[in-house]
Structure formats: C-alpha cells, structure tokens
C-alpha cells in the first residue's frame, strides 16, 4: 500500500529529521501549554490571550534584535521579563476586576483580551509579516552522520526540559509554589492562612508567560514568520495539548504538547497527501481523548493541580 511504500522509501536520515522536528514542535507546544494549565489550575478559566502573549513575545524579540540591535541572548532575557509583565498586566486589568464574577464573564474577558492584543499588534506593528531576526549560531546545521540537524532543534527540547524542572521545583518545593497549590484548591482558606491571593495569581501568570516567552523566542528561530495572528493556531493547539494531558496538570500539559507536536509532524511525514489536514490532527486527537478519557491522560489524580 501507499503508506508502506512511503515508509519504505524513507531513508533513516529523513526519519531522524522528522523525529527531530517532532520533538522540537512538541517541546514548543509543551512550553506554551504549561501556561494554559497553570492558569486553569488556579483560576479555573481558559486564558484565551495566552496564544497572543506568545505573539507579543515574538515581536518583543524582533524589536530587541532587529530594531534595538541587542545581542540575542540579552534579548531573550528582556523578552522574558517584558512578557511576564504583560501576562501580569493582563491578569490585573482583564481578570482581577472579575474575581467574584461568574466564570463566563471571565472567559469573555479573556476573549476580549485576546482580540485586543491581536488588533493592537496589527495597529502597532502592521499586519505584514516580519521575519524573525537571524541568529546564525542557533540556525546552523550540525551533521550527525548523514543527517543534518539545526542547532535550535537540540536547544528546544533541552530548554523545555530545563524549564519544566525549574517549574516543578518552584511548584513543589518553594513557599510560593505551596501557596499556588493551596490557592488552586481553596481561595478562602488560603486567604485565612494569610496568603495574598492576588500576588499568587500574578506570580502564576508571570511564570506561565515567562515560559511562553522562552517558547516564543525559539518558535521565532525555527519558524521565522511573525504576524499579529500567529498566536491563534498555536494557542488553540496548546490549549488542546493541556486538555489532552489533563488540564490543571503540568506534566500532563507537557505530555499533551509532545503528543500533538510529534503526531502533527509524523502525519505530514508518512501521509504527505494528508498534509493539508495537519491542523485538524490536534482536534481529532482532542475528540478521541475526550470521548475515552474526559479528564485527560493525566487528569485523574489532581495532586499537581496548579
């Protein structure tokens, strides 16, 4: 059959290339999905603006390198800081005033925040795609035998795993993390313990946005076209990744991200004639998972809910 023909024709080198691509894309999804899952864990809401935060981070990086001529590694730091502040600002202005409002109002406010960012970017930066600045050291190829792989494809999974480890350390072994877990279960009693809920929620948004910024930077290096609407599709897919993994569960979000990224790349690799349905893959997986395991793959035990 056709599929087997495709697989048979595929050389080891091509397969390795696809796997590397799948791992990178999966890692990027994972980094962004963590932000969705953390916010959901603590506020029980979907932060629809999260994908647009990724987009804004790409523009921050673009301006840092292309306009202000900062070295790329300093730009990473600046981007992370600015994006974290942006995340906190959105929480402060769009979600905090609705803390005691019904969940639906917050959800609508999130959609509003998303549209605002998209249109603001369109107005400020124009809708014309910009090219993410070249960073030769990350874009150069290294050869592994007969396989040529970009440095960034190695950097992405390493940074993702590092980010995950740091995050898990914060959540499980620091006072702030303990407060996050407490707030995610019981606002009122957390308050009675003397925890400032607003600060904890701000911290959650900042951490989620900072991880998204790291993801956005690497996204830009790997997929250099940046536009005001670029955050929509990845945002949607990363939300799906978080749901697949079990929303509220950080490790689940990472797992979901990898499943989607890997699946998407493999579909294109093995079924080139289906590559037009590439974006549909995430939604099909979502439907199947929701059908058989509505709580998501790791959603059963909610120990790690943040």
């Amino acid at each position: 059959m056709e599929i087997f023909q495709t697989i048979a024709n595929m050389t080891g080198a091509a397969l390795a290339q696809h796997v590397a691509n799948g791992i990178s894309l999966g890692s990027l999804y994972a980094l962004i999905a963590i932000g969705y899952t953390m916010v959901y864990g603590i506020l029980l809401m979907i932060n629809f603006a999260h994908g647009d935060i990724v987009m804004m981070a790409c523009y921050f990086a673009y301006f840092g390198i292309a306009v202000f001529n900062l070295p790329w590694y300093i730009t990473v730091v600046v981007t992370v800081v600015l994006t974290a502040l942006l995340g906190a600002l959105i929480e402060r202005t769009a979600y905090r005033p609705l803390r005691d409002a019904p969940k639906n109002s917050v959800l609508i406010s999130a959609i509003g925040a998303s549209f605002l960012l998209e249109n603001l970017a369109n107005y400020l930066f124009s809708g014309r795609p910009k090219r993410f600045p070249r960073i030769p050291i990350l874009e150069q190829n290294v050869s592994l035998g007969s396989v040529q792989i970009q440095v960034i494809s190695f950097v992405i999974p390493v940074v993702t795993i590092l980010g995950l480890l740091i995050l898990l350390h914060i959540v499980n072994h620091t006072k702030t993390g303990m407060a996050m877990r407490a707030v995610s279960k019981d606002y009122e009693i957390a308050r009675v313990m003397g925890i400032n809920i607003d600060n904890v929620i701000s911290a959650t948004f900042m951490i989620g946005s900072a991880l998204a910024a790291v993801g956005a930077f690497m996204w830009g290096v790997k997929y250099p076209g940046i536009t005001p609407m670029m955050g929509v599709m990845p945002g949607l897919k990363c939300f799906i990744a978080a749901v697949i993994g079990g929303i509220g569960n950080i490790k689940g979000a990472v797992l979901g991200g990898f499943i989607l990224g890997m699946g998407e790349i493999m579909i294109v690799a093995f079924f080139p004639q289906l590559s037009g349905y590439r974006d549909a893959f995430a939604f099909i997986v979502l439907i199947v998972i929701l059908f058989y395991k509505p709580t998501g793959l790791m959603g059963e035990k909610l120990m790690e809910k943040v």
Partner: peptide
C-alpha cells in the same frame, strides 16, 4: 476542616505559618 487535600500533612502545617 478544609485542610488542603493536595498538600502533605507537613505542608499543611507549614502553610499555617505562611506569614
């Protein structure tokens, strides 16, 4: 009671001393 079910016994005590 409303202890934090997702925190260990020790963490529940520690969070009592949050301030």
């Amino acid at each position: 009671r409303r202890v934090f079910p997702n925190l260990s016994v020790l963490e529940n005590l520690q969070i009592g001393a949050y301030m």
